[in-house]
Design a protein around this nucleic acid. Structure first.
Length: 912
RNA sequence: GGGCGGUUAGCUCAGUUGGCUAGAGCGCUACCCUUACAAGGUAGAAGUCACUGGUUCGAGUCCAGUACCGCCCACCA
C-alpha cells in the first residue's frame, strides 16, 4: 500500500478521471429499446460566454441528476451545445473590428460573417471546455450548435410552417429599437428600470388664439412628431376643445384635438400629445383616428429633417435639452415636475430603447399559448418550485405577438425572398399557400405583401417567373432557434431514431430569468411541432448572488471565475458546496470561501478512506460481514446508512439537492467518522481477530455505499477512492448501481439505544472539561442507568464508552449512591453519570452548576405541568401526545429527584 | 398599479402534514498536534423565530394585517 498524502489533492486526479470516463464512452447515450430514457438538454450557453457561477449552479445540478439516473439504470442522454447568441456575438466581433480600426460596414456582410465564424471556431468552445473541468458528463458526441446545418433547417421549417398557418406575418408597427445595436428587439429583450425623470408640462397654443392647452410628457423631443392632442371624451373640462386645432411648438404644425378613451383624465393635465411614430399607444390612437405618422428620429436615435432644421442631426437627448430650452424661452413650458417612471433598456448593451416604427416579422402567439398554458396547468409539465406557475400563467394569458426579425447579420437569415420585378411594379397580391401542382410549391408560398416564403432558396418568382429575387436582409431572433432546442437537436424535422427514443425529454434545469425567453416558448414549440410538451419537469434554480445579495456582474467585480475556484478548492468541492448551499427556489448567497465547506468535506472523506485503507487486508470485501454477528454499533451504522440512502434518494426525487447533500454530509461526518470509526478503533487493534475483520468489513461496506451515493455530487473524489479499494479491477463507481435502501435494516429503536451511549459519553466528557481534568488522565465514571434495558445497552458498549470517555473504570450500577461530593450529569432518560474525582471537586462550584441544572428542570416541569393541568389539552389533544407529556413529566420528576440528591450530597440544600 | 419571494444564532441557511428542551455550517470561547484528518478533535456560549392580532389544548409552522428587503410583470403621456 503506497503512502497517501494527508490532504486530498484534487488537481492530481480530476483530469485523469475525466478522460478515463470520456474515453470509455460512459457519457454516450444509445437508443436501447426496453430501457427507459432519461434526457436533459442543456440550456445552451452563448458562444461568447465564459463559465459563470450561474452556469456552475445550473450544470452541477444537471450533472447530479444525470449521473444519478445513470446509476439507477436509465439510458441517460445529457445533450450539450451552444447558442449563437446573435446580438451578443455580433457585438463582440464588432468590438474586435473596432480595435483593428475597421467596422462591419467596411467589410460587407459576407466578409463579416466569415470573421464571426472564425471567432466562433477560435473561442466558441471555451465554455464547453470549462464545463468539462466541472465534471459535466454530457454526451459530447451529440453536441450541437444553434447555427449548425441541422438546426438551421429546423428553423426554416418552423418559419415556413408557421407562415403557412398564418401565424407568421409581416407588418409596420412600433417595435422596441436599440439605437446602438441597430435592431428591433422583442418585448422580453427590453429591461425596464425605474428612473428619476421629469414630467414636462408644455403649452400648445390654440390656433384660434384662445390661449393654450397644456400637455404633460416625459419625452418632450417627440413633440416634433406630434400629429394630434387628445383628451378623454368624458372629461368635462375639455369637451369644448375637441375638434379645435392647436399648433405644435417649434415645428408649428397644426394638429387637431381629438377625443379618445385611452386618455386618463387623472394623469398629468388630462391632455396628451399624440406621436404615432414614436409611441406604441399613440400609434394605436393614430390608427383609430387616421392620423399621419411623422418620424422625427432615425435608427441611430438622431433627429431627422422632419424635426426641423434646428434639431435635425441632433442626438435625441441633446435635442430634448435644446427643445426644452426653446420652450422655456418662448414661455411655452408651464412647469416641470419630478417624475419617477420606468425606462426600457437593451438587454445586451443597456442603451435606452426607442419605440420605433418599422417593418418587421412577427409570430402570432395567442394560438400557441393556449395549449402551452394548458400543459402546465394540467400537470403535463410540472414546474418546480410550483409558484412559477403563476408567473407563467400570467405571461401566457397576456401574451403579445413576438417580433422575430433582427437587423443583424449574425443569425439565421429569414427564409423569405422578394421578387424585384413584381415588387418593382407594385403588383402581386397573392395569398398563401400557393396550391399549384408543382412539388416545389409545397415548399414555398407568397404572401399578400409579395414575400416568397420558402424552405430552400427559390430560383424564380412563382408569380411572374422572374429569377430576379432578393432575400430578406434580416435575421431571426436568437430565441427563434432556441425554442426548438429539445427536438431540433435530436434531428427534427427528420424522424430520427434519436427523436423517437429521446423525445420528450425528462427534466429541464434552468434559471427563472429565462422563463419567458426560453422555457415558455419551448413548451409552445414542442406542442406545436412535436405534438407533445418537450419535458416533463422544469426545475428553476435560484440566482447566484454575492454575500450582500447583489447579482454577480462583471462591472461590480463580484463575479468569481469558477476555474479559479476549481483550481483553489477542486471541482468536487465547488460542486458539493453549490449543491449544499442552494436552497430550493431561493437565490444563493455565495462567496468563494464557502467552498471550504466542500473542500473540508472532501478532505474528511479522503482521510477516513485513508484510515480504512491502512487497516484493510487483501481478503476484506464489502459484500457481507463475513458471517460474524454484528454488534450494536454495526447495526447502528447500517441503519443510518440505509436511512441515508432512503433520504438522499427521496430528496433527489424532489429536486431537493441541498437536502441530499446535507444528508450525505451528516451521515459521513457525524455517524460514520465521529461515532462509528471512533468506536471501531478498539476492535481494529488486533488485526487478525474476527472482531477486527468484522469491523473492517462493515466499515468498507458503508464506505462503498457512501461513495456511490456521493458519486453524482463529487464524481472525481469518489472515483479516486473507489479505485483504491480492494478488489477493483478498473471498474468505475460511476457504473455501479445506485444503492437501494433496505427498510428492514432501518431500526429507530436501535438508533435510540446507541444514542444513549453518545449521550453518556458526551456527559462524561463534559464533566471532565468542567472540572478541568487533564485530557490524558483517566477517570472513574459511574453510570446509574434508568432502566434494565439501558443497563444492558451500556454494558454492551462498555469498552467503546470507556475509550471515548477516557475512563480507567466504568461502573454501571443501578443502586449507586455517592458517599461524597461527586460531579454529576443527568441524561435525558433519567440515568445519571457520576465522575469520581476522589475529592478533588470544588463543592461550591459544583453546587452552583447543579443548581442551574435544577432551575432548568423546574422550568420544564412547570411547563409540562401546566399543559397537563389544562382540561382542554388532556381531552382534545391526541392521546399519543398526552401520553408523551405524562412520560416526560415522570422522567423530569425522576431527574429532579436525582439532581436534588446530588445537591444534598454536596452539603447544602437549595435556597428555595 | 398588479403579482411573487424573504425576514429563525454575529453571518449563510434548514426546520416537509401544527406536537418531545428550535437545528446545521461558518464565526466565537476553552482545551487538545489522542498513531485517518489542525482543511482536524472535544466541550461550550449564543435565538422575544420581523411586528400586531386571530384560529387552536398547543403556532417558527395555519389565517388576517403591518413594516422592511428583494424580484417579476404592466400601454407609469
Amino acid at each position: 500500500m503506497k503512502e497517501l498524502a494527508t490532504r486530498y489533492d484534487p488537481k492530481s486526479v480530476e483530469d485523469r478521471w475525466y478522460s478515463f470516463w470520456e474515453s470509455r464512452g460512459y457519457f454516450t447515450a444509445r437508443v436501447r429499446e426496453g430501457r427507459k430514457p432519461y434526457v436533459i438538454v442543456i440550456p445552451p450557453p452563448n458562444i461568447t460566454g465564459i463559465l459563470t457561477m450561474g452556469h456552475v449552479l445550473n450544470n452541477t445540478l444537471q450533472d447530479i441528476l444525470v449521473r444519478w439516473k445513470r446509476m439507477q439504470g436509465f439510458e441517460v442522454l445529457w445533450l450539450p451545445g451552444t447558442d449563437h447568441a446573435g446580438i451578443a456575438t455580433q457585438n463582440v466581433v464588432e468590438k474586435e473590428l473596432a480595435k483593428a480600426g475597421t467596422k462591419r460596414g467596411n467589410l460587407g456582410r459576407e466578409e463579416f460573417l466569415k470573421k464571426v465564424w472564425e471567432w466562433k471556431e477560435r473561442y466558441g468552445d471555451t465554455i464547453i471546455r470549462q464545463l468539462k473541468k466541472l465534471g459535466c458528463s454530457c454526451d459530447w458526441s451529440r453536441e450541437r450548435f444553434t447555427m449548425d446545418e441541422g438546426l438551421s433547417r429546423a428553423v426554416r421549417e418552423v418559419f415556413v410552417r408557421l407562415h403557412e398557418k398564418g401565424l407568421v406575418y409581416r407588418g409596420r408597427y412600433i417595435i422596441n429599437w436599440c439605437p446602438r445595436c441597430h435592431t428591433a428587439l422583442s418585448d422580453e429583450e427590453v429591461e425596464h428600470e425605474e428612473h428619476d425623470g421629469h414630467l414636462w408640462h408644455i403649452r400648445y397654443p390654440l390656433k384660434d388664439g384662445g390661449g393654450y392647452v397644456t400637455v404633460a410628457t416625459t419625452r418632450p423631443e417627440t413633440l416634433l412628431g406630434d400629429t394630434a392632442v387628445a383628451v378623454n371624451p368624458s372629461d368635462g373640462r375639455y369637451k369644448a376643445l375637441v375638434g379645435k386645432t392647436v399648433v405644435v411648438p417649434s415645428v408649428e404644425r397644426e394638429v387637431p384635438v381629438i377625443a379618445d378613451e385611452f386618455v386618463d383624465p387623472k394623469f398629468g393635465t388630462g391632455i396628451v400629445k399624440v406621436t404615432p411614430a414614436h409611441d406604441p399607444n399613440d400609434f394605436q390612437m393614430g390608427r383609430r383616428h387616421g392620423l399621419p405618422q411623422v418620424a422625427v428620429m432615425d435608427g441611430n436615435a438622431v433627429m431627422t429633417a422632419e424635426a426641423g432644421e434646428d434639431y435635425a442631426g441632433m442626438d435625441r437627448f441633446e435635442c430634448r435639452e435644446a427643445l426644452v430650452a426653446e420652450l422655456e424661452d418662448r414661455k411655452l413650458l408651464a412647469r416641470v415636475e419630478k417624475h419617477r417612471h420606468s425606462v426600457g433598456h437593451c438587454y445586451r448593451c443597456r442603451t435606452v430603447i426607442e419605440p420605433y416604427l418599422s417593418e418587421q416579422w412577427f409570430v402570432k402567439m395567442k394560438p400557441l399559448a393556449g395549449p402551452a398554458l394548458k400543459a402546465v396547468l394540467d400537470g403535463t409539465v410540472s414546474l418546480y418550485p410550483e409558484r412559477w406557475m403563476k408567473v407563467y400563467q400570467h405571461w401566457m394569458e397576456n401574451i403579445r405577438d413576438w417580433c422575430i426579425s433582427r437587423q443583424l447579420w449574425w443569425g439565421h437569415r429569414i427564409p423569405v425572398w422578394y421578387c424585384r420585378q413584381c415588387r418593382g411594379r407594385g403588383k402581386s397580391i397573392v395569398h398563401s399557400p400557393l396550391s399549384t401542382d408543382t412539388t416545389e410549391a409545397m415548399d414555398q408560398s407568397v404572401d399578400h405583401s409579395g414575400a416568397i416564403v420558402s424552405r430552400t432558396p427559390p430560383d424564380k418568382c412563382p408569380v411572374c417567373g422572374s429569377p430576379d429575387l432578393i432575400q430578406d436582409e434580416d435575421v431571426l431572433d436568437t430565441w427563434f432557434s432556441s425554442w426548438l432546442w429539445p427536438f431540433s437537436t435530436l434531428g427534427w424535422p427528420d424522424a430520427t431514431e434519436d427523436l423517437r427514443y429521446f423525445y420528450p425529454t425528462s427534466t429541464l434545469v434552468t434559471g427563472p430569468d429565462i422563463i419567458f425567453f426560453w422555457v415558455a416558448r419551448m413548451i409552445m414549440a414542442g406542442i406545436e411541432f412535436m405534438g407533445e410538451a418537450p419535458f416533463a419537469a422544469v426545475f428553476f434554480t435560484g440566482i447566484i448572488r454575492d454575500m450582500d445579495g447583489r447579482k454577480m456582474s462583471k462591472s461590480l467585480g463580484n463575479s468569481p471565475d469558477p476555474l479559479d475556484v476549481i483550481a483553489r478548492y477542486g471541482a468536487d468541492a465547488l460542486r458539493f458546496t453549490i449543491a449544499r448551499l442552494s436552497p430550493v427556489g431561493q437565490d444563493v448567497h455565495y462567496a468563494n470561501e464557502s467552498c471550504e465547506l466542500g473542500r473540508n468535506f472532501a478532505n474528511k472523506i479522503w482521510n477516513a478512506s485513508r484510515f480504512l485503507l491502512m487497516n484493510l487486508g487483501e481478503d476484506d470485501a464489502a459484500d457481507d460481514a463475513g458471517g460474524f454477528p454484528l454488534t450494536m454499533d454495526d447495526r447502528f451504522i447500517l441503519s443510518r446508512l440505509n436511512r441515508t440512502v432512503r433520504d438522499v434518494t427521496a430528496a433527489l426525487d424532489a429536486f431537493r439537492f441541498n437536502e441530499a447533500a446535507e444528508r450525505l454530509y451528516e451521515f459521513f461526518w457525524s455517524d460514520y467518522c465521529d461515532w462509528y470509526i471512533e468506536s471501531a478503533k478498539g476492535h481494529l487493534q488486533a488485526k487478525g481477530s474476527d472482531d477486527a475483520r468484522r469491523s473492517r468489513r462493515v466499515l468498507l461496506r458503508c464506505l462503498e455505499a457512501f461513495l456511490r451515493l456521493l458519486c453524482p455530487f463529487m464524481p472525481f473524489l469518489s472515483e479516486e477512492i473507489w479505485q483504491m479499494l480492494p478488489g477493483r479491477s478498473g471498474d468505475s463507481v460511476t457504473r455501479t448501481p445506485w444503492p437501494q435502501a433496505d427498510p428492514g435494516l432501518i431500526d429507530p429503536a436501535l438508533e435510540k439505544r446507541v444514542e444513549l451511549k453518545f449521550e453518556a459519553v458526551r456527559a462524561a466528557r463534559n464533566l471532565r472539561k468542567e472540572h478541568h481534568v487533564p485530557p490524558r488522565s483517566d477517570v472513574v465514571v459511574i453510570l446509574k442507568p434508568a432502566s434494565a434495558d439501558e443497563a444492558s445497552a451500556m454494558e454492551e458498549g462498555r469498552a467503546v464508552c470507556m475509550a471515548l470517555m477516557r475512563a480507567g473504570e466504568l461502573r454501571i450500577d443501578p443502586q449507586f449512591l455517592p458517599e461524597r461530593a461527586m460531579p454529576t450529569a443527568p441524561l435525558s432518560s433519567g440515568a445519571i453519570v457520576y465522575m469520581d474525582l476522589s475529592g478533588s471537586v470544588d463543592p461550591s462550584a459544583e453546587r452552583e452548576r447543579v443548581t442551574r441544572e435544577l432551575n432548568e428542570i423546574d422550568l420544564e416541569i412547570e411547563k409540562v405541568g401546566k399543559e397537563l393541568a389544562n382540561e382542554a389539552f388532556v381531552s382534545k389533544a391526541p392521546s399519543k401526545v398526552v401520553e408523551m407529556r405524562r412520560r416526560k413529566k415522570k422522567s423530569l420528576a425522576a431527574r429532579r429527584e436525582k439532581v436534588m440528591k446530588s445537591l444534598e450530597s454536596l452539603g447544602e440544600g437549595r435556597g428555595s
